[in-house]
Design a protein around this nucleic acid. Structure first.
Lengths: 217, 217
DNA sequence: ATCACTAAAATTGTCGACAATCTGTTGATC
DNA sequence: GATCAACAGATTGTCGACAATTTTAGTGAT
């Protein structure tokens, strides 16, 4: 349990990040430094430190002498992000097929087994699937053993992807389908077939992206 | 000519970034906030603003309550970065084959013609090749029309790649070979063959990475 | 000589205030 | 009535000082 929240700006960063991802702070809305610093009981300097990190996560945009805005969710941006995510997680998957230990692979398989039983109980519960899905992707990404890639995906892109999934509302019949895709991916990795694993992951992410895009009508 | 240096921290950011990339501030060295803020004639708050952006570029690393260090250049990290770069620029290249206009493609061709004539004059001059190479890659990346990808490559990864190239010393016989590879890539794009363009770009970047890796002995 | 503990120095994190810039409104001119 | 200029208000950028933490130096005991 690595709780990396050591400083005050860390806590504010995590809090605001969640507020943005969950939609508590509306997409596209302006961010007032005086207001937020008062709300979170910190000085503007501390708040600005947190805002800088939010910008690194691509959750807010900044203009000099003007201020910050929460990003707006659009189908076009979703497409752009998922193109990038597909390329990067595809790479991660291919690397994982080489670099994951047998132990790590078995742990992911066990994780999927657990998801299967949990899923049966909570069929429509999208939150569990959300967490489970992310846990799966996390492990594959970590399995690539490429720390630069891990940082890029887990720290800089992850929350942005999550924002689309949360605010566009992930649920419905894709849950069980996604599970099967996860299974196929970890099997390819277990077979040390990096090329196939990469292909399956790219397809899996493309399907997920299309699923979200449909929510825009 | 978009000079995005509007604020004081912008200028400090650009200055320090160059100092790090060029090796004026040694890799792995500790960064003293009081020292640097005095050197650049700004307050620590302004300096810290710049340091935050340097961290976003992956040029420095930060530990809470300890401070910043310039990153260290290692063969392992080089490998990691080039794996990521290959995937992303490969994607950019594939997208460019679809999204670049005929005009833009012709401009890149003209750029390569210009490089050819300049290169004949200054055969061993690595700096020109350096700039020319980057200009080429820039244009392909922009040609992808994927703003998220563009930002990732041009703003967050670019200076880090440059740091390796500059400090490990790029030169030698790869210059003319790289030119031929550029030509093949733009031709594939002109033929609207995204698949081939992606393959060629990935191969081109892998070759470039191996070339740098050789410098580590 | 080595280690543990303490104290002091230095560095980072945080704060409140001031300066520079932008935004929106009012009013004058055409 | 429209355009533009000046003004007022608010917001962001920057500064110097204080608080919290880490690092270093020093002291003493084993």
């Amino acid at each position: 349990m690595e709780n990396e929240v050591k400083t005050a700006s860390d806590k504010v960063f995590v809090d605001i990040r969640q507020a943005i991802v969950e939609g508590e702070i509306a997409q596209g809305s302006k961010i007032s430094e005086p207001e937020l610093s008062k709300k979170h009981q910190v000085s503007r300097a501390t708040l600005r430190e947190a805002l800088n990190r939010l910008e690194s996560c691509h959750l807010i945009e900044r203009k000099a002498n003007v201020g910050c805005r929460v990003i707006s969710l659009t189908p076009e941006k979703l497409d752009e992000i998922y193109q990038v995510r597909s390329a990067l997680e595809g790479l991660a998957c291919r690397l994982a097929a080489t670099n994951m230990t047998d132990d790590e692979i078995n742990q992911v398989k066990a994780l999927l087994d657990e998801h299967l039983s949990t899923q049966r109980v909570r069929q429509g519960e999208s939150y569990y699937q959300e967490e489970g899905d992310l846990d799966f992707h996390y492990r594959i990404i970590k399995g690539s053993k490429n720390s630069h890639l891990i940082n890029l995906l887990c720290n800089e892109l992850y929350q942005l992807v999550r924002m689309y999934r949360v605010q566009m509302g992930m649920n419905g019949p894709r849950v069980s389908k996604a599970f099967d895709e996860h299974l196929a991916i970890i099997n390819a990795i277990a077979a040390r077939d990096g090329e196939l694993a990469e292909l399956l992951m790219k397809r899996h992410i493309a399907a997920s992206g299309n699923n979200i895009e449909r929510k825009f009508q």
